[in-house]
Amino acid sequence: MTADDLLASVRDDKQTELSRLGSSKTLYADTRGEMEEAAVRAAAATREQAAVDTFSAWADDADGDAADLFARAADDAAERLDDLAAHAEDRELGMHAKLDGYDATVERLGGLVGWTLVDGKVKEQLTGFFTGQADPGTASTFRSARDGVEALREDAADLLDAACESDGDWETAENAAADVIAAAYDHYFETLEELGVNPKPVC
């Protein structure tokens, strides 16, 4: 297996989940139905703060190229948090609860890949929201942020190609990525159900 194979497999296996996480219902769930600019900024800040916490802890616990990559992921999230000028809410995010349980480097690299697949979808929705708010500056910030998240995914994939020495390593990384997406989706699904919203698209 290669990192390209892993990405293709995870995207195929989690196609439905990623598609739904890429809908406007994600922001609705994040804000618990309060789709005002301040609420959206706070929800985005909550995601960025969780990323700072997770990836900075990983960086402190790693070495070499993996430590550098995790530190960059944390620094990028911290910069986005500063740009938002909003306070993060004190609440748990399903996928970060999953990520925080990963210990091995291969598992964490796979988890980072899964996180980027989810976070890229969220950044697309944030870009669209602020475009609709006639705030092109903030929309551009999130568009650039999405590009940065995609760059992290590419670099994580490169490190996986170097770090995975067996089929078992690849299976560990793939399962980690898929489980992060599943955790994000479960949180999304459960939140929408609590709000009385059908999480599934209506055809």
Results as ranks from 00 to 15, higher is better:
Ala134Ser: 15
Phe129Asp: 03
Asp135Met: 10
Thr105Val: 14
Leu126Lys: 06
Val118Ser: 00
Gly110Arg: 04
Ala104Thr: 10
Leu126Glu: 12
Gln133His: 11
Thr131Met: 13
Thr138Gly: 11
Gly120Gln: 03
Arg146Lys: 15
Leu109Thr: 04
Gly148Trp: 00
Lys123Val: 03
Val122Ile: 14
Phe130His: 08
Thr141Ser: 13
Val122Met: 08
Lys123Asn: 13
Thr105Pro: 08
Glu154Ile: 05
Thr127Val: 07
Asp119Gln: 13
Gly128Arg: 12
Pro136Val: 08
Thr131Ile: 11
Val113Lys: 01
Val122Ser: 04
Lys121Leu: 02
Thr141Arg: 14
Glu124Gln: 14
Lys123Trp: 01
Glu124Phe: 08
Val149Arg: 02
Phe142Pro: 11
Ser140Leu: 13
Phe129Lys: 03
Ser144Asp: 15
Ala145Asn: 14
Val118Met: 00
Phe129Ile: 05
Ala151Lys: 09
Val106Asp: 10
Lys123Tyr: 06
Gly114Val: 03
Val113Tyr: 08
Glu154Met: 08
Pro136Phe: 05
Thr105Gln: 10
Leu117Gln: 09
Arg108His: 05
Gly128Met: 02
Gly132Leu: 02
Arg108Trp: 03
Val106His: 03
Ala139Phe: 07
Glu154Cys: 01
Ser140Phe: 09
Ser144Met: 12
Leu117Gly: 07
Thr116Ala: 09
Gly120Tyr: 03
Thr138Cys: 09
Gly114Thr: 06
Val106Gly: 04
Val149Asn: 03
Val118Leu: 01
Gly148Glu: 09
Asp135Trp: 10
Phe130Gln: 07
Phe142Ile: 05
Thr105Ala: 12
Ser140Gly: 15
Asp119Gly: 04
Phe142His: 15
Arg146Gly: 11
Phe129Tyr: 15
Glu124Ala: 15
Ala134Trp: 10
Gly120Ala: 07
